[in-house]
Design a protein around this nucleic acid. Structure first.
Lengths: 236, 236
DNA sequence: CTTGTCGTACTAACATGTTAGTTGACGTAT
DNA sequence: ATACGTCAACTAACATGTTAGTACGACAAG
């Protein structure tokens, strides 16, 4: 009934517009395609096709795929094929757990040690979120939301934390793509953010952590029904 | 005064005794050499020499080095060389912070959700630790200690957690190699472990987390003087 | 119609060849 | 002696050739 399963069409992001080594650019291009679901779960990644589409040899593609495999975005079937990994509610829960662990530690440290200027920057970002909501600008809100979390990571002073947090929650990020942004949810989100910002302003680590925990729990709750609603994205 | 700096002698672990793909075995061999300080910080890793010593081509070696680079165990100088990374107290502190974040989350979840059999296993491991101490068997205690933490990670049910925790604290693990095991410290360690085990037995997450936090803080404290005591291991 | 075997076509994994950029030594001028 | 420009040797990064293992369809047997 199935032809062979899925085949990958190559509408990859042009690698010339990216920076870094060839392998790095190929990695970013493939990662983008997987996260945006241009390569849906189960799609087969053909090295040959990718090389041709991007105009590079197999070396940088191999390195890129090795990294994606380490991050769990692709499943490499030895000596056979590599496919975009399927969703797995267990992996999503695990990613959310790990992200929570890191974000709680981060927000706790920030509430404890951050400078007045950093608090001011956080509050400025928060006002930006409010403006985006008022304008109904979902794209802008999404961006400010990302910046909000990234800012907290950076203000810990630990350089790897941000990248690590993004890495562990890649599956969550990908699953989040399915969720449609709703006005109601954006309003709730911003209120959850407000609780976090206020706790940080009061330099109250425990309260900031509790607020962050409540905030992150919402995402998992919204993700849970996905398994029954979109079973084709999950492993057969 | 310095010849060229450091050169790498190849007393690498034989790759035939390991399992997995060639690249995986090469990776494990190199990682072991770096963690045991057979390749001291600053030592130059020459692809050619490594290929010859292990009897493989450059492909698996390149992949192995790419992974080590991602984990921060080697610094790749583009188009030039790759060396075993120097210690950095900042990175060690960051590794300890990340590890703490993950272990606290893990021990909290375990204290909350684990089964009676799992508690029994933890207590069994703890008794093993006590026996090793009594016998003055430091190697045995070290191994039980590792198992203790690994066990907590596994009992969360999250498969990637253990590997991730080990990965983020690689620098800490390497620095720990310098610390000599002392009978006094082993005794303290086991008492810190006892507090954790008791809290888990009582299924008291908050107390288990506090005990774990106290335990992990000890290691950072013992690592701190290293920067002045062994400056040659740190970046010039 | 089901089940098992064989063979082919395709792939990842590994080996090797090529390119281009960096480093550091050496000679030269100051 | 010291600062600087040149150049040769070495390296990572990239390209390409080779090997061997897997999946899948055709076909035969039950």
């Amino acid at each position: 009934m199935t032809t062979v399963d899925d085949i990958d069409v190559s509408q990859l992001k042009e690698i010339n517009s990216l920076e870094g080594s060839l392998a790095q650019r190929v990695y970013l291009s493939l990662k983008d395609a997987i996260l945006t679901l241009a390569f849906p779960p189960g799609a087969i990644l053909r090295k040959g096709a990718i090389c041709e589409a991007l105009g590079v040899s197999r070396s940088p593609v191999s390195e890129a795929i090795a990294r994606l495999s380490a991050e769990g975005l692709v499943d490499v079937i030895p000596q056979s094929a590599t496919r975009a990994s399927y969703f797995s509610m267990e992996e999503i829960r695990e990613g959310a757990f790990l992200r929570e662990a890191l974000e709680l530690a981060a927000v706790g440290k920030v509430a404890r040690d951050c400078t007045d200027e950093q608090i001011a920057k956080i509050r400025r970002n928060f006002r930006m979120q409010l403006l985006s909501i008022e304008d109904g600008d979902f794209a802008g809100f999404y961006q400010s939301d990302e910046e909000f979390h990234a800012m907290l990571m950076e203000f810990t002073g630990y350089s790897r934390l941000k990248a690590l947090s993004q890495m562990v929650s890649l599956q969550v990020t990908r699953a989040r793509m399915i969720l449609l942004p709703s006005p109601g949810r954006a309003g709730e989100t911003v209120e959850e953010h407000r609780a976090i910002v206020d706790a940080i302003t009061d330099r109250d680590p425990a309260r900031a952590q509790a607020a962050m925990q409540a905030h992150l729990a919402q995402l998992v709750m919204r993700l849970a029904p996905l398994e029954t609603e979109r079973p084709e994205l999950f492993r057969p």
